[in-house]
Amino acid sequence: MGEEIDKGATETRRVTRLIRLPEVQHRVGLGRSTIYRWMSEGKFPKPVQLGGYAVAWGEEDIIAWVESQLKR
């Protein structure tokens, strides 16, 4: 009747919030052009395609990038 739960499963499900460009810019302190240039140079995380021209970044990816910049 109900859904069975696999109690032996050890894999954790990663849930991340997707954030759009204005919030990314606010968090990292960079402009749109710099973000896209650094993405093409491999210096900044790439976004996920949401559909059409809409993109968003994983919040965890942005947090990890900011932390990596602080360690430099």
Rank of each mutant, 00 (worst) to 15 (best):
T10L: 15
K7E: 14
R13G: 00
E59H: 08
K46G: 00
E59R: 11
A54W: 07
A9V: 12
A9G: 12
P45H: 05
R17C: 03
V48G: 01
F44L: 04
I35Y: 08
Q49E: 02
R32W: 04
K46D: 02
G8E: 15
K7D: 10
L50W: 04
K7L: 15
E59L: 12
E23S: 06
K46T: 03
G8H: 12
P45F: 05
M1H: 11
G31I: 11
A9W: 07
W57L: 00
R37Y: 03
E3F: 12
R72M: 05
D61H: 07
W38N: 08
S68V: 05
A56S: 03
V24W: 09
R20Q: 10
T16I: 07
Y36F: 14
L50G: 02
P45E: 04
R72F: 04
T10C: 06
G51F: 02
L70K: 15
E3S: 09
A9L: 13
D6I: 08
I5Y: 14
P47C: 01
I62F: 09
L30I: 07
E60R: 10
I63F: 13
G42P: 02
Q49R: 07
E3C: 02
I19T: 07
G8N: 15
R17F: 04
L18M: 07
E60F: 02
E11R: 13
V66I: 15
G8S: 14
P47K: 00
A9T: 12
W38I: 00
E11N: 06
R14Y: 10
P47G: 00
A54T: 13
E60L: 04
K71W: 08
S40R: 14
I35H: 07
R37E: 09
G58I: 00
R72S: 08
M39R: 11
V24D: 09
Q25W: 08
R27Y: 12
P47I: 00
G52K: 07
R20K: 13
V28D: 10
L18Q: 04
E23A: 08
A9N: 15
L70D: 12
I62A: 06
D6Y: 11
Q69G: 06
W65C: 02
L30W: 15
A64F: 12
G42H: 09
W65K: 07
W57Y: 03
A9H: 11
T10Y: 11
E67H: 11
K7G: 03
R20G: 01
G8K: 12
V24K: 07
D61L: 03
R13N: 05
A64T: 14
M1K: 10
E4D: 11
A54V: 08
V28P: 09
R27L: 15
R14M: 06
I63G: 06
R14I: 12
P22N: 09
P47M: 01
R14C: 03
K46H: 06
R37H: 05
L50V: 03
E41P: 00
G58Y: 11
R13D: 10
R32Y: 08
S33P: 03
E23P: 01
M39Q: 14
A9K: 15
F44I: 02
